[in-house]
């Protein structure tokens, strides 16, 4: 019985840097719950990278992740993960599922890439009968995705963009303030996004003492509690995000520590990305037939390169 060969059955590009991958894995689709994550490997030489499960379809037997091309591996995945290809490995679902509490009114806050994994949570709350307010933040209109999906399952949607090109102009915290002003009875906030956003979100609800859950995504290797790389400080205690989390009480998480630990491999990450971008550029100049390790798609997709360079440091 082969579990899955990790075939990519659908892909959608939300922007120059954000893309969705839907992978066939019937057993995992059956087991997955909101809040859990997977670790994927693109090929035998790749890193193991943790990605939050953005959606799963038990009927189709697929699991969906939304990825942002920010480093070498995610940029390479953007080039190579086309429909019909397969990942080298995908393991999960990992971590504790999110506890969908019995709160009657909740705000589900997603920023940037965090918009994807907040979706199954919003849907989960809706299914358990809560009034769900979705607060989504993007840098600009071009980066917006899944607005329709959220509108279909939430009672209210507050869209924020930094430049005001869609929804209200402002940060995600402006959206939270708006929601808190409209509703004095929000019992719980769930927030997924970059650490700096989750920190701001936790600060925004601290005074009102509204329960605020966040989903952390630190650097990890195995995802099974064995390496300790993903340790985070929660309420003064050391927790491993992979087996103790990834959801924690946002008011207890030491976000500064989390953000600092995300910088562990900055130099190596930059080196890998530069080297990879350079090898792509070389391929483009020399022409087909000399693509780096196992990526025949690179030549035909070389028009992407300029975009990728723009995404550096993004």
């Amino acid at each position: 019985m082969k579990m899955s060969n990790f075939e990519i059955v659908a892909r959608e590009d939300f922007s120059d840097v954000t893309y969705l991958l839907e992978v066939r894995h019937p057993l995992m689709a059956k087991a997955a719950k909101p809040g859990q994550f997977v670790i994927v490997m693109l090929n035998e030489h790749s890193e193991r990278i943790p990605l939050t499960i953005a959606d799963f379809d038990r009927r189709k037997g697929t699991v969906t992740m939304v990825v942002q091309a920010v480093g070498k591996t995610t940029m390479q995945m953007q080039q190579e993960c086309l429909v019909g290809t397969a990942l080298f490995g995908m393991v999960g679902p990992m971590g504790h599922p999110s506890q969908t509490s019995r709160a009657k009114k909740v705000a589900c806050v997603g920023g940037g890439l965090g918009v994807a994994p907040i979706f199954p949570q919003a849907r989960g709350f809706k299914e358990s009968g809560a009034y769900v307010i979705a607060i989504l933040g993007f840098r600009n209109r071009d980066l917006v995705f899944w607005e329709d999906k959220f509108r279909a399952c939430c009672d209210e949607l507050i869209l924020c963009t930094n430049d005001g090109s869609a929804g209200i102009k402002g940060m995600i915290t402006d959206g939270i303030k708006l929601a808190l002003a409209r509703h004095s009875d929000i019992e719980e906030v769930v927030s997924i996004g970059p650490p700096v956003m989750m920190k701001a979100c936790a600060e925004a609800t601290r005074a009102a003492k509204i329960k605020t859950m966040v989903s952390v995504n630190p650097i990890m290797v195995d995802g099974t509690g064995m390496c300790g790389g993903c340790r985070v400080k929660v309420g003064g205690q050391v927790k491993f995000a992979c087996v103790d989390g990834p959801d924690f009480d946002g008011h207890q998480v030491d976000f500064d520590d989390l953000m600092s630990r995300l910088q562990r491999f900055t130099a190596a990450e930059r080196e890998a990305k530069d080297r990879w971008s350079e090898s792509c550029r070389m391929t483009k100049q020399i022409g087909p037939g000399v693509s780096p390790r196992g990526s025949p798609e690179i030549e035909s997709r070389s028009e992407l390169l300029d975009l990728l360079n723009d995404a550096k440091g993004g």
Binding site: M226, A268, A272
Partner: peptide
């Protein structure tokens, strides 16, 4: 870091062969 992390990165993930293998090592 833990010895488990150092050893796993080095042995299983072959970070000692970075950048041929993608996993970095401290």
């Amino acid at each position: 870091l833990s010895a488990n992390e150092l050893l796993t990165r080095c042995n299983l993930m072959r970070a000692k062969e970075f950048p041929d293998y993608d996993t970095p090592l401290p």
